[in-house]
Amino acid sequence: MREFQAYPTQKASNEIIFRFKDEESANQFLSTFQLFKQTLVEIQVRDDREISAKQRRFIYALFKDISNWTGYDPEIIKQGFKFDFERLKDIDEISLSNVEKSVAANFLTYLLDFVADHNVPLSFRPLDALEPEDVAHWEYRALIEGFDVLDGSRPVELAHGEHAVGMGRDRDKISNIGNTVFSLSHTHHMELHKIGLNAFKAKYHINGVRVTPEIIKELESRGRRFGGKGE
């Protein structure tokens, strides 16, 4: 497979015009395209942004927390997780000094999945480490694994969003399917009720998890229940 670099310059409906760096490159692309009689070109978008200082700081904080939990030296933890991540993603060796920002985000999520799977105590709030598009995954893991989505602590309570239980409502007559829920410690649960749903979501930059029958089934398989009909 040959790779070419080009930049999108103009859009018209569902058509996009790409500009190559010079005419020779464009001609090479066309000749390759015609040589193999292709009718489809695969386009990959490269992330030229480098890892942020914030991402790097949290990655190394995770190395330290996992080190404290396992008893292994942080450098051993670093090399081991890097190697496993590179093998899993089938990528070349990454450098935490200049790796692409999107790859760093995936690596953070990979490390946090390990933390969620093994209940590793953390010294920081995971939500502070994540890009907005990765927050939903962490919220889901918190709900399924049963830890506080904000600080990773246990035990937790399932806090309801739009259709709150309480104030005379019978928990056993409420279906949670389609409802938004949060996995929170008692303290954070009480804060949600005190400041209100919208203020709580804005303060912590979370949206909650929309409950599906599959989520209820998964929770039940782990011995956890919402309480309510249809579960």
Results as ranks from 00 to 15, higher is better:
87 R>P: 00
127 L>K: 04
129 A>T: 09
69 W>G: 02
134 D>F: 11
142 A>I: 05
144 I>W: 02
95 S>Q: 04
132 P>R: 10
207 N>P: 00
105 A>G: 10
194 K>I: 01
142 A>G: 10
101 K>T: 01
186 H>Q: 14
132 P>N: 09
132 P>M: 08
109 T>N: 12
146 G>N: 11
144 I>S: 02
102 S>Q: 09
200 F>E: 11
138 W>S: 07
92 D>F: 04
99 V>K: 01
189 H>T: 09
113 D>L: 11
119 N>Q: 15
201 K>C: 12
70 T>H: 04
174 I>R: 10
110 Y>C: 01
123 S>M: 05
159 A>H: 11
69 W>E: 13
207 N>E: 14
94 I>N: 00
186 H>I: 12
148 D>K: 07
103 V>I: 15
149 V>N: 02
119 N>D: 15
117 D>E: 15
89 K>M: 03
105 A>C: 03
171 R>F: 01
96 L>D: 03
167 M>V: 12
207 N>V: 06
71 G>H: 05
114 F>G: 02
185 S>G: 11
178 G>Y: 08
201 K>T: 09
109 T>L: 14
72 Y>W: 11
202 A>L: 11
101 K>R: 15
155 P>Y: 08
198 N>R: 14
176 N>H: 15
97 S>L: 11
196 G>Y: 05
124 F>D: 07
76 I>E: 12
188 H>N: 15
110 Y>S: 01
124 F>L: 08
117 D>P: 01
210 R>V: 14
132 P>S: 10
99 V>D: 02
206 I>P: 06
180 T>D: 09
203 K>A: 12
187 T>M: 12
89 K>S: 00
70 T>C: 03
173 K>V: 07
139 E>S: 07
156 V>T: 13
91 I>N: 02
197 L>H: 12
114 F>Y: 15
124 F>G: 07
188 H>M: 12
190 M>G: 03
141 R>N: 09
110 Y>F: 15
181 V>F: 04
187 T>G: 13
118 H>W: 12
161 G>C: 07
205 H>P: 02
152 G>I: 09
80 G>D: 11
85 F>C: 01
205 H>S: 14
158 L>M: 13
74 P>V: 07
102 S>L: 06
198 N>G: 03
132 P>T: 09
151 D>P: 00
144 I>R: 04
206 I>M: 06
181 V>P: 03
100 E>K: 11
199 A>S: 13
122 L>C: 05
84 D>C: 02
116 A>K: 04
199 A>G: 03
145 E>H: 14
173 K>Y: 08
178 G>Q: 06
153 S>T: 14
205 H>Y: 08
146 G>K: 11
77 I>L: 00
